[in-house]
């Protein structure tokens, strides 16, 4: 390995390991080392989604053929109208939005409160509580289907939005993540507040929460995403379109028999489920990615 001699750091333009910005050598290296992997990675993500959108405009005849054409013959919205008349997508969308908003808001609040209690409040069995939370993280949600169905259906939660939301409200993941973050907060910031006579409630919301916004954003993001995409529980607890969420509604488009050429309709349905999330994600990505990146390294 050629070790360049240690140089004094100066503003010299002609440093050997840093060629001029526009030299052809630099350009080639930038493309190979910088852009190429980026472009490849981006294409791998974008192409399947683009394919989904293109296919959603194709007629069954254009899809069920071995003679593939990349672009649809025309922007044909039949698949969308079929998808939207077969199942009430508008309603699904609204239900998903309500379930996600309410579920995520409650979960994040509970996670903040529990994590604060675990870190900043004295309690004899704190570690036991924490272990119990950690263990809860490991209970696969599918395991809970049957017992929770029996309970929720028993108290009248079948085919209701609260029946979808309630069993998921307890949050082990958010609590875990925020506890890990709160542990890293410097003690000094709370001391001052305690001297000022601020109680726990005030310290929680006026000091701990404001300095933890990135971590809380992470938890919020992960919670929102999982609520929005949750599939098996809403599938089990609903059988009326009025209360179904988007992923459940999407599977309704699949049909067991006579499904000839239904790919176009399914892709249209997938577009209706995926694109709104992508749009929101694109608008908020700066905050979301920043939150996620800052939150996770502290874990």
């Amino acid at each position: 390995m050629s070790a360049p001699a240690p140089l004094a750091v100066t503003e010299t333009v002609g440093k050997p390991e840093r060629p001029r910005p526009f030299s052809s050598q630099n350009l080639a290296r930038t493309i190979a080392g910088g852009y190429l992997p980026l472009i490849v990675a981006t294409l791998i993500v974008v192409l399947p989604l683009l394919w989904m959108v293109l296919s959603s405009f194709k007629t069954p005849g254009e899809i069920v053929t071995t003679d593939l054409k990349v672009l649809p013959e025309s922007v044909n919205l039949d698949n969308y109208s079929t998808a939207m008349t077969t199942v009430p997508f508008g309603r699904f969308f609204l239900n998903s939005a309500i379930v996600t908003a309410v579920g995520a808001a409650v979960k994040v609040t509970l996670a903040i409160m529990t994590a604060y209690a675990l870190v900043f409040v004295r309690f004899p069995f704190k570690n036991v509580v924490f272990i119990l939370i950690l263990v809860a993280l490991m209970v696969p949600p599918q395991v809970a289907i049957l017992p929770n169905y029996v309970l929720i259906a028993g108290i009248g939660g079948k085919n209701t939005l609260w029946g979808i939301i309630l069993p998921g409200l307890g949050t082990a993941f958010g609590t875990f993540l925020l506890r890990q973050h709160f542990m890293t907060l410097p003690a000094s910031i709370l001391e001052a507040a305690e001297i000022d006579g601020a109680g726990h409630w005030k310290r929680l919301w006026q000091i701990v929460v404001p300095v933890s916004v990135p971590s809380i954003a992470t938890v919020a993001l992960v919670t929102i995403v999982s609520e929005w995409n949750d599939y098996i529980w809403p599938l089990i607890i609903t059988d009326r379109p009025e209360v179904m969420t988007l992923p459940v509604g999407l599977t309704l488009l699949q049909n067991s028999e006579g499904g000839t050429g239904s790919w176009g309709i399914l892709m249209a349905g997938a577009v209706l489920v995926i694109v709104p999330v992508l749009v929101v994600f694109a608008m908020l990505q700066r905050y979301i990615v920043a939150g996620l990146t800052q939150g996770s390294v502290t874990g």
């Binding site: 993001l221 995409n229 997938a270």
Partner: peptide, 26 residues
């Protein structure tokens, strides 16, 4: 953002899209 995007998408939707891509016929 692009690389991260699939993480936030519905597994049901993603599964359907890839099923179509992998379909050995079309």
């Amino acid at each position: 953002s692009a690389v991260f995007a699939p993480y936030v998408l519905s597994g049901v939707g993603v599964g359907l899209v890839w099923m179509f891509i992998f379909d050995p016929g079309y």
